[in-house]
């Protein structure tokens, strides 16, 4: 199971970004996961809490958006969404195709941060003062 290793990579990137943004807490991490990425959603969810422990992501939710495979067909020109990854065939004319337009994603989309209101307000008013 390589999902633990994937989870550690994910946490490292997200925690780094959260720190840079000055977040004290992260509510959720949003991931885009293609069905051909080779990563299993449930295993990744299971590993996430372990990887997040002791980081700014501890206690946050991992939200995974699963993306079906979309292929482009050279024969008829159609872009179709596959019902199954067991057959990479055009949904329109049935020709086999390796022109994969979606479905290999394994990327962090965005984080939902919880920031301290007071700190935020101070930062905002400081910004305004500078502008004035």
């Amino acid at each position: 199971m390589h999902e633990l290793s994937i989870a550690y990579n994910l946490v490292e990137i997200a925690a780094d970004a959260a720190h840079k943004a000055g977040a004290q807490q992260v509510a959720s991490v949003h991931l885009r996961l293609g069905l051909l990425s080779g990563v299993v959603k449930d295993s990744l969810l299971f590993c996430y809490d372990i990887a997040a422990e002791g980081t700014v992501l501890a206690g946050s939710r991992l939200e995974i958006e699963e993306l079906p495979v979309i292929v482009h067909c050279d024969e008829c020109g159609a872009d179709t969404t596959l019902e199954t990854i067991q057959r990479l065939a055009c949904g329109n004319c049935g020709a086999l195709t390796m022109d994969i337009r979606q479905g290999k994603e394994l990327s962090i989309d965005y984080l939902e941060l919880e920031t301290d209101d007071a700190a935020e307000n101070t930062a905002n008013s400081a910004g305004r003062t500078e502008q004035e």
């Binding site: 970004a17 977040a23 991931l31 990327s107 962090i108 984080l111 941060l113």
Partner: peptide
């Protein structure tokens, strides 16, 4: 505490790649 969206758009295996 106010939620705030932080865009990342980064591959999880970027470092490996």
């Amino acid at each position: 505490m106010q939620p705030r969206i932080l865009q990342i758009q980064q591959g999880v295996l970027n470092k490996n790649d």
